[in-house]
Amino acid sequence: MSRYLLDKFLYTVDRDPSLVERYREDPAGTVAWWEETQANRILNCCAGESSTWLAFDDVERDALASHDYVKLFELGAHPFLTLTLFIGMFERDHGPLEFQKEYARRLAHFSLPYPDIST
């Protein structure tokens, strides 16, 4: 499991409006494409620089492909990254603050200490 890779996915997708829409419409396809083409790119670095070993495990891949932000939180994905991305994808389907309230309600069963979100 790689919290770094989960957070990297959430971070990079959230910063590109076309990827947000792609992830909303085709989550499994977007996750597969991103893992194959973007996962091993080094953030904020020169073109051509990359690593070779980063990949999601099946649990991470399934959580991303099903938009399961509760599972992502359990896996240690940073809650601010999940919240901002999922607001961008789903707030339009709800009234003001309804999605944020649903997010909080679905995560309400967690108590301190929360899952570790350090990378």
Results as ranks from 00 to 15, higher is better:
R15I: 00
E49M: 14
N44E: 15
F110M: 07
G88F: 01
D57Y: 13
G95E: 11
E25N: 09
L85H: 00
Y11T: 02
E98R: 09
L83V: 03
A55M: 11
P113R: 10
D7N: 09
R106P: 06
L112D: 12
R24Y: 02
D93A: 14
N44T: 10
P79E: 05
S66Y: 06
L10F: 01
M89C: 03
F9E: 02
E102S: 12
F110K: 05
I117Y: 08
R3V: 11
T12H: 03
G88M: 02
Y4Q: 04
S2R: 11
S111Y: 08
D57E: 13
Y103T: 06
D116M: 11
S51K: 09
F80H: 05
L54I: 05
M1C: 08
A63K: 13
S2C: 10
K71L: 04
Y11I: 00
E21M: 04
T37E: 12
G76F: 08
R41T: 04
E36H: 13
I117E: 10
I87K: 13
Y103D: 12
L64Y: 01
F80P: 00
T30R: 01
D62H: 06
F110Y: 12
Y4H: 07
R92N: 09
R24M: 00
E74P: 12
H109S: 08
V59S: 10
R106T: 09
D57K: 12
H94N: 10
D58A: 14
H78P: 01
Q38Y: 12
C46Y: 12
M1P: 15
I87N: 05
H67V: 05
H78S: 04
N40L: 13
M1N: 10
T119V: 07
D14V: 00
M89W: 03
S66A: 14
W34C: 01
V13E: 01
C46K: 15
D57G: 11
L75F: 12
E21L: 04
L6N: 00
I42S: 07
R24Q: 02
G48Q: 13
F99P: 10
L107M: 11
A65T: 05
D14Y: 00
C46N: 14
F80W: 05
P79N: 05
L75C: 08
F56P: 08
E98Y: 07
Q100F: 03
A55G: 14
P115T: 10
D26P: 02
R3W: 07
L83D: 04
H78C: 00
F9H: 02
M89A: 02
L75S: 09
T30F: 01
Y103I: 06
R105F: 10
L83A: 07
F90N: 02
L83W: 06
V59H: 11
V59D: 14
C45I: 06
E36C: 11
L64A: 01
I42W: 15
L85S: 00
N40S: 13
E102K: 14
F9K: 02
D26G: 04
N40P: 15
E91A: 14
F90S: 02
H67S: 06
A108T: 12
N40A: 13
E98S: 13
L83H: 09
